[in-house]
Amino acid sequence: MTSSLAKAAGRTAAKRRSGGWEPFTVVSVIGVALFMLVCLIPFWVILSGSFTDEQTLAGKGYSLIPQPFSTAAYKLIFTGPTLVSAYVASIFITVVGTVLALSITSGLSWVIARRLPYVSRPLAIFAYIPMLFAGGLVPLYLLVTQYLKLQNSYLAVILPLLVAPFLVFIQVSAFRQLPEEILDSARVDGAGEMQIFFRIGLPLSKPILAVVGLFYAVHYWNEWFTALLFISDIHKYPLPLLLQNLISNVTFSQMLPTAAEQSTPVYQLRLALTVVTIGPILLAYPFAQRYFVKGITLGATKG
């Protein structure tokens, strides 16, 4: 099987670089650039706004240059006593959660994708139903707090979100597109089904693993609701819950006497929170991206 892999790689690497710019390429570049712009401008406005003085922000609206410059919102965020532990908690939840979720999802998806008689189809239905029917909050709450006793444990955040049916089906569809010949030739070589999964299925599916892993990571990184339900110790709050509380508190802070010098920068804070949440994900993104960009780079030279 290694030989077939090498062959495939050799084929894709074939140096076939089309010479000129075809019209479609030009259209594509322009199209992508336009969409990028539509995404970049708001991002810039958010970034710049998060550094703009609250008074100006509320008064004149947004601008492309942070004028007058202010770091009030970031100060408010970063002076919280529990910010470091919140980052640690979020990283732990994201890493452990993503690894577990990706492993379990891949296992299930492979079994469904293989179209095994009496197994695959019932499993697919079994995995699909939870996407539509949910028992609700109270049963889940009782389950986690009273039967599993997971209060204040990160498992309480990780476990309820462990398998997302949506991603199962994305992965199933990708697994099914693996070339059968490669699997068959492995069987001929005497590989067992498990071996095929670990040695061929998974390595060949790096792009989809990267995508699904990325989606799980994003999911866990942003998760605050289960944390709200099950984590009451403020030293264990993950980042999104901490930020969620911060913004909610600021919105209601008008009802409390506050130190007169300080007025909470509501607008600015919302924008800064967006930046603080996205930051780490955007930093981590290129690592996942490597797998599918690489594939595409090969693909793009086709033609």
């Binding site: 609700g136 109270v138 049963p139 039967y147 609701f225």
Partner: peptide
């Protein structure tokens, strides 16, 4: 605020409707 608290989570709200019954 005698006025209502802003921003109830719909997800939570609907889910709460799921009632009470694992027990």
């Amino acid at each position: 605020p005698a006025t209502s608290p802003a921003g109830l989570s719909r997800r939570g709200f609907l889910a709460a409707g799921g009632g009470l019954s694992l027990a």
